[in-house]
Design a protein around this nucleic acid. Structure first.
Lengths: 213, 213
DNA sequence: AATAAATCGGTATATCGGTATCGGTAAATA
DNA sequence: TATTTACCGATACCGATATACCGATTTATT
């Protein structure tokens, strides 16, 4: 099976968002050059990306059927059969994610939160109940959640990730700035703000240097 | 000047974190294979990455001086001369970022927050004062902040980004799921959770399919 | 002192993502 | 109906990144 890089895969949600907007605006057919100009991509890249996931063929001079395209991308990304998740670590970032409404559009249902802070327990954050981490192993299998969202401090990330895997989690969406060492069949996707900031910072340095000269 | 991709640059903060941990643990010298095994990278890649930013040469059979290495990476990333930023959109995510202590370690100082919600104004979040967005153009030049962190809803992202650029921002760290159309000399770094989730979701689908067969 | 082991730097190679090109074809136009 | 236009699909190309390899060198060991 072909594998896709983060960059490639990451473009599909962006296409999806635009396509949905256009479709809601009453547009039925869309062409690659149009998408390209709206998103700042090249025409060729858009066409290649769409060919990748779509079985339908585009019509010259017109483009592609938006509705079918949306379905194709959603199916490709796995948004169609919605996935269940739990979130561990209800701090600032964790709360923000629990309150993020767009996840359900992407087929992600966060069923519950977990935290070790007793003052949070049994409360509701973003409409989700918070359980103690000690109950993870007990509750997680019952929820049948495949994804564990990790928003805990880096020091405990590895330990908590193992608990989640023990409980049956198949994928970890890791927001902690820590490298996780887990069995190879577990899917780990890291979100590292420091990395993103490093890129920004470096590019800014270049831009400022160029400005000065 | 050589430019680096997100993948390449993004590894340096990860090295940095590990190196600092090791150094605090009393380790003075570190080898590429050791780093590689700790982070799950290949030995060759680590060596190449380090060669890229470090002027010192490694010693066979030993490795490199951790302290010098940390300095080299921090200098390369621009962490040494700290950069000022403001944050626009003090919602859940914005608050989480305002409360994120590690930014100052990375040389990023968030000076103030901006929001349109009157109930937030003049309060402090994460120790930072919150101003109305309408004052952006007035306050931003005085703060001399180069980076604007954008944590606003997608619908207003473009509009607010333009305000920030008007106020003198040179770089936008964009957390809104929207494509920003800005002058080419403005550095835009997008953080798109939907993209990250798409990657996770797709890989999970593959993993689950493999499991079944 | 001689040998073995580990890591380095440099280079060569392969893969991959992105870009450009080109012929074909459906739709629009005259 | 003939011609032009716009977009598609396929393929070829290019640059860059990651990987693999190899000789050199320093340290540790016997």
């Amino acid at each position: 099976m072909k594998t896709y890089s983060l960059n490639q895969l990451g473009r599909y949600p962006i296409y999806l968002k635009l396509l949905k907007e256009l479709h809601e605006g009453g547009v039925e057919i869309v062409s690659s050059p149009l998408i390209a100009s709206r998103l700042g991509y090249s025409e060729e890249q858009v066409r290649k990306d769409l060919q990748n996931v779509s079985s339908e063929v585009g019509r010259p001079k017109k483009g592609r059927d938006i509705k079918l395209l949306i379905e194709d991308i959603e199916t490709f990304l796995g948004y169609r059969d919605s996935t269940s998740a739990i979130l561990i670590g209800v701090g600032h970032l964790g709360s923000a994610l629990l309150n993020f409404p767009a996840f359900s559009e992407m087929g992600l249902e966060i069923l519950a939160g977990f935290d070790s802070d007793p003052s949070l327990l049994w409360k509701r954050v973003g409409g989700k109940e918070i359980f103690p981490i000690s109950m993870l192993k007990e509750i997680l299998p019952r929820l049948n959640a495949h994804i564990a969202i990790l928003t805990v401090p880096a020091k405990v990330a590895q330990e908590v990730a193992l608990l989640a895997v023990d409980g049956g989690a198949k994928a970890i969406w890791n927001f902690a700035p820590a490298h996780l060492d887990l069995p190879p069949d577990i899917v780990v996707e890291n979100v590292n703000l420091a990395s993103s900031l490093a890129v920004l910072s470096h590019r800014l340095n270049i831009a400022l240097a160029k400005e000065e000269k």
